[in-house]
Simulated scan of single mutants.
Amino acid sequence: MTMKGFFKMIEISDSIDGGAVIVHPKGKIDTLTAKTFEAHLKKHIDEGIGPLLVDLAEVDYVSSFGLRSMLVVAKLLAPSGRKYVLFGLSPQVHEVLRVSGFLRIIPVVASRAEALALAEAAAGSS
């Protein structure tokens, strides 16, 4: 019996918009993929370029390991004052963040336009 295709890995791509780095994960952020997701975001933190926005539109599941990765990134970005915004969450992922209290820790908005506006407002106030 082959396990090929049983474990779906996460796919991550990036784009730049208005000086903000937008990360586009696709798949699940769970026990098997959270470290990859976290390492990818840490790479952008180390580069120190603009706000970090994460488009979760194609993420259908976030486990406690995924939440931990998101929190680690928030804590690493906090001292620099760089904006970190999540957007495009499915109802299921939004509910996980709400129940876990993450909506009070990390800014979450519905759309890319709102995320960019929030990042721009933060840049303008600093």
Rank of each mutant, 00 (worst) to 15 (best):
G81Q: 06
H44C: 06
I22G: 03
I12P: 12
E95P: 07
S80C: 08
K26L: 11
P25N: 07
V93K: 06
R82A: 15
G66I: 02
S111A: 04
L71F: 14
L53Q: 09
I49S: 13
I49T: 14
E47C: 07
T33Y: 10
Y84R: 09
I45Y: 00
L56H: 11
V93T: 09
L41F: 11
E38S: 11
S90C: 05
P91F: 05
L77S: 01
L89D: 00
S111P: 08
L52T: 01
E58M: 13
I12T: 12
G48W: 03
D55L: 08
I16L: 13
Y84D: 06
K26N: 09
D14I: 06
A57L: 09
G19T: 07
S90G: 04
R104M: 07
L32V: 14
Y61F: 15
F102C: 11
V93G: 02
A110P: 01
A34W: 03
P51F: 03
D17T: 13
G18I: 03
E58S: 13
T33A: 12
A39T: 08
G88E: 06
L41A: 01
H24G: 08
A34N: 02
A39K: 13
P107W: 08
G88R: 08
L56W: 05
V85C: 08
G101L: 10
Y61I: 09
E38F: 08
L77R: 01
D60R: 00
S69M: 13
I22N: 05
L67W: 04
Y61W: 11
G50R: 06
I16A: 13
